[in-house]
Design a protein around this nucleic acid. Structure first.
Lengths: 222, 222
DNA sequence: GTCTATATCGGGATAGAC
DNA sequence: GTCTATCCCGATATAGAC
């Protein structure tokens, strides 16, 4: 919401970029305003000229991330594609945003781990709309008879979990490869998406094994 | 590795318990030694009598968590059950550990998000053995002809991602319910396990749609 | 808008008595 | 083993010149 000469980003933009990096790598408490300022080629005072506090800076970055995801996802929901295609697009929407903004997955993960301690109620409401959107898509498919009912939040975990883990694990995979604890073959981004879409649609397939989610199946033979 | 009168846990045990709670809720940097001491009904000095530093305390807790998971998982791998049952048991092993030690999932998540900054190389090696064990199970099934080849790490994300997200999201679900942003219907633990096992086995099913994981499929219809 | 100082304080770690 | 008191650094935030 702010005009910027695209060539040399202004100080505010540089701060936001550096802060996203810092928060993603270290978390809210681990982030250091001095280091952040240096990375933005500015001094601390400049940060506090643009932002009220560390917390305000963090909130703004995180809220903007969530908003970007929500924008894409809502567009998907409001399209007139069949539900199965919406699911597919839903997964790709989140993946695309994670690809474009590599600092988003780690920040998201940390917020989940911390019970959203660093975000205000309004932002919590925004976050909640992500699975809520998925729930609408599922409901549409159920009404169609294309899907069988499934717990939307659980479905959401099945999408977001692997996706975020994949994006976030890049540094670890690199580290493991460097230290040769066991070289990890590279993972194709398309393979990640395919597997997630497949397993999500499988969980929604009315024809499928169904897995009545009973408490009583174990020790069966393949 | 330490005898303890089971009735009144000794100070060291109380510290470990309080620390797990504190680290899980706030992360390494957010954790506060004063608050931790109070929770353990001790003073800070006592913590430093038992542990070299905050980092050492953190490391020990985390390593122990990983070891507990590894113990279960190795037992699964070394059993003579058919590969599909091993997969099932693998999922349940991690879920059981997450159930018993509720502080483990958030800490794990944070370590992933932070690129394992707070753990030593040896522990990183232990962590890596979790997907490595899964890889062995998969390889066994592939050799059998029961499974088709799949990227073990990707498979691992498909298991751990949803599972950890489920466990870790309990506080948020509660918060959402309290603030009535939209009441979340409860998720049955068994349903979580079933869905994860199903989708994992589906990804390994040689008969299935297969999704050749090529880089070249997009824009197709369902 | 951008900078150099600096105020202020929370929190990790230690000293040393008991 | 357990405590009280304290050191002291690092980190958020601000003052105030340019």
């Amino acid at each position: 919401m702010r005009k910027v000469s695209a060539l040399r980003p202004d100080s505010r933009t540089r701060i936001l970029a550096a802060a996203a990096h810092e928060f993603a790598a270290r978390g809210f408490d681990g982030a250091n305003m001095d280091r952040l300022a240096r990375a933005a080629r500015l001094n601390k005072a400049m940060i506090y000229y643009h932002f009220r506090s560390k917390a305000a800076l963090y909130s703004e970055i995180f809220r903007e991330f969530i908003r970007a995801v929500l924008d894409r996802i809502r567009a998907v929901d409001e399209s007139d594609a069949p539900p199965a295609d919406k699911i597919r697009a839903f997964v790709r929407a989140i993946a695309a945003e994670a690809q474009i903004r590599p600092h988003f997955p780690p920040m998201w993960l940390r917020e989940i781990a911390g019970g959203s301690r660093h975000v205000d109620q309004a932002t919590v409401g925004l976050i909640a709309q992500i699975p809520a959107t998925l729930a609408r898509i599922v409901a549409e498919g159920v009404a169609n008879g294309e899907f069988r009912p499934a717990h939307p939040l659980l479905l959401h975990f099945g999408i977001v979990g692997p996706l975020i883990l994949y994006h976030v694990s890049e540094p670890i995979r690199a580290r493991l490869n460097r230290t040769s604890f066991g070289a990890v073959p590279p993972i194709e981004p398309e393979a990640v998406l395919e597997q997630i879409v497949q397993s999500t649609l499988a969980a929604l397939d009315p024809a499928a094994p169904a897995a009545p989610a009973g408490t009583s199946r174990q020790g069966r033979r393949s």
